[in-house]
Design a protein around this nucleic acid. Structure first.
Length: 301
DNA sequence: TACTAACCTGTACG
DNA sequence: ACGTACAGGTTAG
């Protein structure tokens, strides 16, 4: 019994922590009268996902409600979570973050939605990103009804590629409008093959350089897409928050010079961070990011 | 190579 | 109510 319970501790999934950690934007928790159960609904590409949690048993039930046969390992349960946590536990800071947020997971997202989401995210805030993506779904995505609720799934590449600029701009994309349209066109034309990029044949650098060819995608956005949807756990997105974290807790481990985050500096830091945390450094990034945002009481959705 | 201004939207504060 | 400050990543110069 004791063994089983400690094993299950290693495999817990904290749905709330994982969804509220800056990875996904089209999720909501429904109001429930039962404190032990929560129901979440989210958009993952053309799928509507329903997650039911029971906080007593730690059971998490996932269903793709518009396509019940579809099976997705959304929480990456097939990762060896316990081993990954052990491997990245290199110092007290990361150990503390892991202890503080047990069950925090990297989510396996739909690649096209993830691509567009993080293009939209650039130079924007979570509230704005969420609003824009929701508008995109309402404008260009298919409508469904389930559980007496209305859902709009994420638009297909063709829909966004052929969208009128003013219709896209209405979603609050601003100057990112053409980035979104170009990216959708690239996917539609097959110039960017997301399935291929997700396959294990490409290493991190090959996959990343493909993404970087697209307008509107720089180092940080590319790393988010790689980590959250293209199976690259050695991607470590360096945004404003991560830079602050590295300066605050890791100034002895990684030294910095120069003010702006140039491509060269980004790659230099990235290399050292991955050398330090190992091939699953992306998980370390997620724990540190979550910890620091929570400590600063930043809102998620 | 390194740095910086400009880009766009929404919120917070005075 | 109005202006100003600010947050955020990429691009072009």
């Amino acid at each position: 019994m004791r063994v089983a319970s400690s094993l299950s501790q290693n495999n817990i999934i904290n749905v709330e922590s994982s969804i509220n950690s800056g990875q996904v934007f089209l999720w909501q928790r429904t109001d429930t009268t039962n404190h032990n159960n929560h129901v979440w609904y989210g958009i993952n590409g053309e799928n509507i996902i329903r997650i039911t949690t029971n906080y007593n048993t730690n059971k998490v039930q996932i269903r793709c409600i518009n396509n019940p046969k579809k099976r997705i390992d959304f929480f990456r349960s097939s990762d060896n979570y316990a081993k990954i946590l052990r491997d990245i536990s290199k110092d007290e800071t990361i150990k503390h973050a892991i202890r503080q947020f047990p069950g925090l997971r990297i989510l396996r997202q739909d690649p096209f939605q993830c691509l567009i989401s993080f293009i939209v995210s650039s130079n924007s805030s979570i509230q704005n990103i969420k609003r824009s993506l929701h508008k995109l779904c309402m404008q260009f995505g298919d409508r469904y009804e389930f559980d007496n609720r209305e859902f709009f799934v994420f638009p297909k590449p063709q829909k966004l590629a052929k969208a009128r600029n003013d219709q896209l701009a209405k979603c609050g994309l601003g100057y990112r409008t053409k980035f979104v349209k170009c990216a959708a066109q690239n996917v539609l034309d097959g110039d960017i093959d997301l399935e291929k990029l997700a396959s294990k044949k490409n290493d991190y650098h090959t996959a990343k350089s493909s993404l970087l060819e697209m307008i509107g995608i720089g180092d940080k956005v590319a790393d988010c897409i790689l980590l959250f949807s293209l199976e690259r756990l050695d991607a470590f997105p360096l945004d404003r928050w991560m830079m602050r974290i590295l300066e605050k807790y890791y100034s002895d481990t990684f030294s910095f010079e120069g003010k702006s985050l140039t491509t060269k500096k980004y790659q230099d830091i990235h290399k050292r961070v991955v050398d330090y945390f190992g091939p699953n450094a992306g998980y370390a990034q997620q724990f540190l990011f979550k910890m620091e945002r929570e400590n600063n009481q930043k809102r998620w959705l």
